[in-house]
C-alpha cells in the first residue's frame, strides 16, 4: 500500500504542495526538450532526404561550435567568425556529398550509415588535430546572446529563468518555423520532399540529387551550429558534447524519423517527461533514471503508434 501511495499519489501531492518548483521543473524540461528537438531536427533533415541515419550529427555539433570558438580566438569579430563557420559547414556539406555520398549512390542504406560512422571518427580526429582536446568557453556574450537570469516570484516561491535558455527556446522555434516554411513553400523544399518520397522519380523529373544532398547537409550543419552554441553556453565546448546527440534517439523514436513536427513534439515530450520522472519518481529508486526513462517513454508511445507520433505509416501489401 505504501508503495502504491509513493508511486501513484505522493508525486502529485509534491507537485501541488510546491507549485513554484513544479513550474521550474516544467521550464527546465521545456528548455531541455527544445534543445533535444534541435538535435533531432538535424537527424530528421538528412534522413528525409537520403534515408540515412546520420551518425555524425553529434560530432557535427561539436565541430561547428569548435570552429566558431576557434575562429573567434584568432581575433575575428564574433559575427565574422559566425559567418565563416557557416562557410566551413557549407564546405563540409559539399565534401560529404562529393567524397562520401556520391560514390555510394545506390548502395544499401547500411553502407551509407557505416560511412557516417567513418565520417564521425574523421571529424573527431580533424577537430582534435585543429582545435586540440581542451574545452573552450562559448562566446555567448560576444555573439550578443544574453547571459543573465530572471526571477519570477510566483506561488509564494521563485522560478529562475536563464536568459540564455529563453534565447535558446526562441532561436530553436525560429529555426524550426524557418526550416518548415523553407521546405514547404520553396522550390528547393518541394524538390527535397520529392527526393524524400522517391529518389528515382525525383531524378526522372530532373531534380538534382547531389544539389539536394548538399543543401540538406548544409542545413543540418546550420542546425548543428545552433545546437552547439546553445549547449556550449550551458556547459562548455568540448568533445563530450557529442554524447548529447544520443539524447535525440528517443526523440526520433517517438516523433518519427521523417517528421519535423515530430522532432519538435517528441523533443518536448521527452524533455518534460524525463524531468518530471527524474524529479518526482526518480528518488523512489535511487535517482539517475533520466538517461533510460527517455527510452521508456518513447517505447510506451511506440506500443500505440509503431511509426512514431508523426512518422509515415508504412503499409506493404503482399
Amino acid at each position: 500500500m505504501d508503495v502504491l501511495w509513493a508511486v501513484l499519489v505522493q508525486p502529485f501531492v509534491d507537485m501541488v504542495s510546491a507549485p513554484d518548483f513544479l513550474l521550474q521543473v516544467l521550464w527546465d524540461g521545456f528548455v531541455g526538450g527544445v534543445l533535444y528537438a534541435l538535435i533531432a531536427l538535424g537527424f530528421v533533415l538528412i534522413f528525409k532526404a537520403s534515408g540515412i541515419f546520420n551518425f555524425a550529427q553529434g560530432i557535427m555539433v561539436v565541430f561547428a561550435a569548435l570552429t566558431l570558438v576557434g575562429l573567434y580566438a584568432l581575433g575575428m569579430p564574433a559575427w565574422v567568425a559566425l559567418g565563416l563557420t557557416l562557410v566551413v559547414m557549407f564546405v563540409l556539406a559539399v565534401a560529404v556529398e562529393r567524397l562520401v555520398l556520391r560514390p555510394l549512390v545506390n548502395q544499401p542504406d547500411i553502407i551509407l550509415f557505416m560511412a557516417t560512422i567513418g565520417l564521425t571518427y574523421f571529424l573527431i580526429g580533424l577537430g582534435e588535430f585543429v582545435f586540440g582536446g581542451e574545452p573552450k568557453v562559448m562566446i555567448t556574450e560576444a555573439l550578443g546572446l544574453p547571459t543573465g537570469m530572471r526571477e519570477w516570484e510566483v506561488f509564494g516561491g521563485v522560478v529562475f529563468f536563464q536568459e540564455i535558455d529563453i534565447a535558446a527556446a526562441a532561436i530553436a522555434i525560429v529555426m524550426v518555423v524557418g526550416i518548415g516554411v523553407f521546405f514547404h513553400y520553396t522550390r528547393i523544399g518541394r524538390a527535397l520532399r520529392a527526393v524524400a518520397d522517391d529518389h528515382q522519380a525525383a531524378l526522372s523529373v530532373g531534380i538534382s540529387l547531389e544539389q539536394i544532398w548538399v543543401i540538406v547537409w548544409f542545413t543540418a550543419g546550420v542546425v548543428a551550429l545552433a545546437t552547439g552554441i546553445m549547449w556550449g553556453a550551458r556547459s562548455d565546448v568540448s568533445f563530450a558534447l557529442q554524447i548529447i546527440a544520443l539524447k535525440a534517439l528517443p526523440v526520433l523514436i517517438l516523433g518519427g524519423f521523417t517528421s519535423i513536427p515530430g522532432a519538435i513534439v517528441g523533443g518536448l515530450i521527452i524533455g518534460i517527461g524525463e524531468k518530471l520522472g527524474e524529479i518526482y519518481w526518480g528518488p523512489l529508486i535511487g535517482g539517475g533514471i533520466e538517461s533510460w526513462l527517455a527510452y521508456v517513454i518513447a517505447l510506451v508511445f511506440l506500443l500505440f503508434r509503431p511509426q512514431g507520433l508523426f512518422g509515415e505509416r508504412i503499409i506493404e501489401r503482399v
Binding site: 521550474q24 531541455g32 550551458r234 554524447i243 524531468k275 524529479i279 535517482g287 533520466e290
Partner: peptide, 22 residues
C-alpha cells in the same frame, strides 16, 4: 543524499540540480 550523474548526462545536469534545489 546521493545525486548520480551518468557519463552521458555530464553536460546535462539540470535534473540533479533541481533535486538539490528541492
Amino acid at each position: 543524499l546521493q545525486y548520480p550523474v551518468p557519463a552521458q548526462e555530464m553536460q546535462n545536469q539540470s535534473s540533479q540540480w533541481l533535486n538539490v534545489r528541492r
